[in-house]
């Protein structure tokens, strides 16, 4: 099963860490990502820039309104996403519990919606055939 792991963290807390601390945490995360890769569990991932650089689009009164920042006024924001291959939810929990990033903020593990993904793939195939 494919799971998408959303890694949250507290930016202010992160900014409070020294450069060495930040570097060592990152190194730990990269090392574990490699371990996941070796086991065939790491399908991909993206690190995100600060929420300060985010734009939020919202549909309001028939118009798209652009504002700065994220939706919610929560302390923790998404800092990165990881695509994981695991047998089932217990396996995914086990793999992500050992990820050093969880010490820095919560992980949300969501199964990929393969039904919608299949629809997306199908529509892509159709378009390719047209070209």
């Amino acid at each position: 099963m494919k799971f998408i792991c959303l890694g949250y963290f507290d930016e202010t807390q992160w900014d409070g860490l020294s450069e060495t601390e930040q570097a060592s945490l990152m190194a730990d995360c990269f090392a574990y990502d490699d371990e996941l890769r070796r086991g065939g569990h790491f399908l991909g991932g993206e690190a995100l820039q600060s929420v300060r650089n985010a734009a939020t689009l919202r549909y309001q009164n028939g118009q798209v309104v652009v504002t700065d920042g994220p939706f919610a006024e929560t302390k923790e924001q998404i800092g990165g996403i990881l695509m994981l291959e695991a047998r089932d939810l217990n396996h995914a929990i086990q793999l992500m519990s050992r990820h050093p990033g969880v010490r820095n903020g919560p992980f949300e593990i969501r199964p990929a919606d393969e039904e919608i993904n299949a629809q997306v793939n199908q529509s892509q195939t159709l378009q390719t055939n047209l070209h």
């Binding site: 695991a86 089932d88 939810l89 217990n90 396996h91 995914a92 929990i93 086990q94 199964p111």
Partner: peptide, 13 residues
């Protein structure tokens, strides 16, 4: 949908 398995958890969990 979430893939909650039908199993006794691993010893460590």
């Amino acid at each position: 949908a979430a893939g909650i398995p039908y199993q006794v958890p691993a010893l460590e969990d």
